[in-house]
Design a protein around this nucleic acid. Structure first.
Lengths: 337, 337
DNA sequence: CTTGGCACTCAGGAGTAAGGAGTGCCAGCG
DNA sequence: CGCTGGCACTCCTTACTCCTGAGTGCCAAG
């Protein structure tokens, strides 16, 4: 129902509109792209494309603008992900490899992605449930108060204060610590609750209350922090685009972890870059924004997602290229640290 | 040179302009505030105030608008900090006391402050140089790779990976750990470099290289992370105000840690709330923003700063009240954890 | 020193007109 | 049957003008 030429016209419309931000007319199309036909012919094609819902006119006697459906077709069938230049790749590599801990990796990544795409970047911390325990540390910081530090294989460090019912001897703490480490080492965090269920029974009766307190805090940490840690950068890039009225809504969304999580979408829907366009987004008020996201991880293990948020009028091929490249490099960096 | 009535007029102008965002004229002033004189008189006073540089007109035949100098006089002599309502205080208390670690305290604080003031809030993490060591942990996470975890009395947890020249025995690590803790426990971070200078000499010759590696990373951590950790929230509130062109610049500034630090200003210039108005700010491009900031800490010890960034046209008394109150509560929370 | 009166200024909105980009449709051509 | 040039039509955009009203500065009188 759409022959090759009509698809070519749609592609040209998307490309021109993205670069000029102005409705594109038949005459301009005929001039800038050598489609080999006259403006009148293009007009006929445009009429068909509009009827099918791929493009629309802001008003009579204006050029055409792609609809969400039009962008969708463009992304799915009319474009290919544009790889980054060698210089860009090298820049990513050197910038990321300078990081010295997980916080630093994440914060560098998000800033890098924002700069590459000139849009708002969002990066999720490696999921806790997909990580495994590397080390558990228990330190008495004051009478009746312990600090639990949980280090995962992805470099995440979670810390919690534990109020114990009474003072605990250094010896008991050492015992408890050893116990925790032997029974948890290398274990996936999802399996921790089952593994520690019988912990209080393994310690002497005097230490039971303390062990129980530690346990409850440990389990709490796993559920509370869950997947929720997520950061963004590049809000300034929003001001450049003419977001006008919706700018506020976008900023609000960015500050809500929950909304951000929903925007990035479920992990693992596909092994490559995914795109959500305009109204495809779950969130009202972000109807004119698109999200380009991808999973990252080490090897086969998916750790979390990262992505970019921008106007529907976006350079999808380049953005997708940047997101894919950054996701890969982050995986490499995490694997090496 | 400025009698009481002229000051009253200035105060009225500031208050009206802050609440309406429109240049205020002599007639409106006479109606809304009972100054006991006619508009004509007020006009004369206004002429004087303008001549002295406290107010200005956007254009002939418009009302007057306060200048930075006018706001300054208002803040210094014409207003008093407005205490929060009981309900607000209670809300702060319950919200902050729910926090369970330092990250959480800081993130809650910044969101709280943003919401209270309906502006952009900025909170600096407790300064490392003003903290002291509570515990040092050393863990072998892989062959030739150690993890150094530094816990301060303010709850900050810094972690760094250390590559050792070769494998290190568990025994050596234990020794090193004990050594570090005994010689650093309770020490101010500023004093750490001196205290550990002779550390390599205290260990056996075999462990020298490892000790040196640990040492260099430890010292690096202290200088690199220095004071620089700082977060903000409430960017969405920027969109509400009519910041127009400068919005982008403000957003850029917010994402630059260094700029943020400079904006908050030096700690300890005064024991109470400080205000920087418009051009008093060190940063170009933020000429139409004001910063209201205060130190926070536990007891006499100042830990860091927090504050609010907004348009010069701001409700200073309320904002100052909120900043002061939040700073106090944060201190209390930190003292109790 | 304060006040009412008065002429003056000027930003902002409404109304109008010209310009132009782009369309839809039609008739003719290969 | 599809492509093309021509043409009338639509309607957004810009510029221009005019008008109104808020607010001022100044002056003369109390």
């Amino acid at each position: 129902m759409l022959d090759d030429r009509k698809l070519a016209v749609l592609r040209a419309i998307v490309e021109d509109f993205v670069s000029t931000n102005e409705p594109v007319g038949s005459k301009a199309l005929a001039e800038r792209h050598n489609l080999g036909v006259s403006p009148a012919t293009i007009r006929n094609d445009m009429a068909v494309l509009e009827e099918q819902g791929y493009i629309t006119q802001p008003h009579t006697s204006a050029g055409r603008v792609p609809t969400d459906k039009g962008y969708r077709l463009f992304v799915d069938r009319l474009s290919t992900i544009k790889p980054l230049s060698v210089a860009e790749r090298r820049a990513i590599e050197t910038f990321l490899s300078g990081a010295y801990d997980l916080d630093d990796v994440v914060s560098r990544t998000v800033r890098l992605l924002a700069q590459l795409t000139r849009q708002v970047a969002v990066v999720q911390y490696p999921s806790l449930t997909r990580s495994s325990v590397r080390h558990v540390e228990l330190v008495q910081v004051a009478e009746g108060r312990l600090l639990l530090v949980l280090i995962t294989n992805t470099g995440r460090v979670e810390q919690r204060v534990i109020e114990t019912p009474g003072p605990v001897s250094e010896e008991s703490i050492g015992h408890l610590r050893a116990l925790l480490n032997t029974c948890l080492d290398g274990l996936g965090l999802g399996d921790v609750p089952a593994a520690v269920a019988d912990l209080p029974e393994k310690v002497g009766p005097d230490d039971r209350p303390a062990a129980a307190a530690v346990l409850s805090v440990l389990l709490e940490t796993l559920v509370e922090k869950h997947e929720e840690k997520i950061v963004f950068a590049g809000a300034a890039n929003l001001a450049a685009v003419d977001f006008s009225q919706s700018l506020r809504e976008v900023l609000v969304a960015l500050e809500e972890q929950v909304v951000l999580m929903r925007l990035l979408g479920e992990t693992g829907d596909s092994s490559t870059v995914t795109v959500r366009i305009g109204t495809e987004n779950p969130d009202l008020g972000l109807r004119s924004t698109s999200v380009v996201a991808a999973d990252y991880g080490v090897g086969d293990l998916t750790l979390a997602r990262l992505g970019v948020l921008g106007p529907t009028r976006m350079d999808y091929p380049s953005t997708m290229g940047a997101v894919r490249a950054v996701a890969r490099y982050v995986g490499q960096i995490l694997a090496g640290s």
